[in-house]
Amino acid sequence: MSVHVAPLMLHARGFVNSVNVDKPLHEMTDAYLYHIVVLINDLGVARLEGLEASISHQDRRELQHKLRAFGVRRVEWRHHGIEKHTNLVR
């Protein structure tokens, strides 16, 4: 029998540059700039939901880079009622 475990939901937090994001989550007590829930479907499409605060273009690019490592091919979100997306794989 083969078992494939795929992440379907992620919670992303954006910290200032000086935070070590490799330590365990329970040790990460630093204040964060934003947090967002990421839902990933089986087609590799990630939906960003519930952005708290604002995210810079640079932070969005870094988030997309990290999501691509999870197999995400496309990122979708809504901004002021307008659906938007970015293709990570062409």
Results as ranks from 00 to 15, higher is better:
His11Ile: 13
Ile82Asn: 11
Gly44Glu: 04
Lys66Gly: 00
Arg73Ser: 13
Phe70His: 12
Ile40Trp: 03
Val5Glu: 09
Leu51Ala: 03
Leu39Lys: 15
Arg74Ile: 09
Tyr32His: 15
His57Ser: 12
Val3Trp: 05
Ala6Val: 15
Pro7Leu: 00
His65Met: 06
Asp59Phe: 04
Arg13Trp: 01
Ile55Gly: 01
Val38Glu: 04
Gly44Cys: 07
Ala6His: 12
Lys66Thr: 04
Gln58Gly: 00
His4Ala: 13
His80Pro: 01
Asp30Asn: 08
Asn41Leu: 10
Asp30Val: 03
Val72Asp: 00
Leu51His: 01
Ser54Asn: 11
Ile82His: 14
Gly50Arg: 06
His26Gly: 02
Val3Gly: 05
Gln64Asn: 11
Gln58Asp: 06
Asp59His: 06
Ser2Tyr: 12
Val89Lys: 01
Asn17Val: 07
Asp59Lys: 09
Leu10His: 08
Asp22Pro: 03
Ile40Lys: 03
Val45Ala: 02
Asn41Ile: 09
His35Asp: 11
His85Tyr: 15
Leu10Cys: 08
Ala53Asn: 15
Asn20Ala: 06
Val21Glu: 00
His4Met: 15
Lys23Trp: 03
His4Val: 15
Pro24Glu: 05
Val5Thr: 13
His4Ser: 14
Ala46His: 08
Asp30His: 07
Leu39Ala: 12
Lys23Asn: 01
Leu88Asn: 04
Glu76Gly: 01
Lys84Trp: 07
Leu43Cys: 08
Val37Leu: 05
Glu83Ala: 11
Asn17Tyr: 04
Ala46Pro: 13
Leu10Ala: 06
Glu62Cys: 11
Arg47Glu: 07
Gly14Gln: 13
Val89Pro: 00
Val45Asp: 02
Leu10Gln: 07
Asn41His: 07
Phe15His: 10
Gly44Pro: 12
Val3Cys: 04
Met9Gln: 15
Glu27Met: 14
Gly81Trp: 10
Thr29Phe: 02
Glu62Thr: 14
Pro7Met: 08
Gly44Met: 02
Val3Asn: 03
Ala12Leu: 05
Leu43Gln: 14
Ile55Val: 08
Asp42Ser: 14
Glu27Lys: 15
Lys23Tyr: 01
Arg47Pro: 02
Met1Ala: 08
Arg61Pro: 00
His57Ala: 09
Met1Lys: 07
Gly14His: 09
Leu63Glu: 00
Asn20His: 08
Asn41Trp: 08
Glu83Trp: 12
His57Tyr: 07
Arg68Leu: 08
Leu67Asp: 05
His4Asn: 14
Glu52Asn: 04
Val45Glu: 08
Leu39Val: 15
Arg47Trp: 04
Ile36Val: 13
Leu8Glu: 13
Gly44Asp: 06
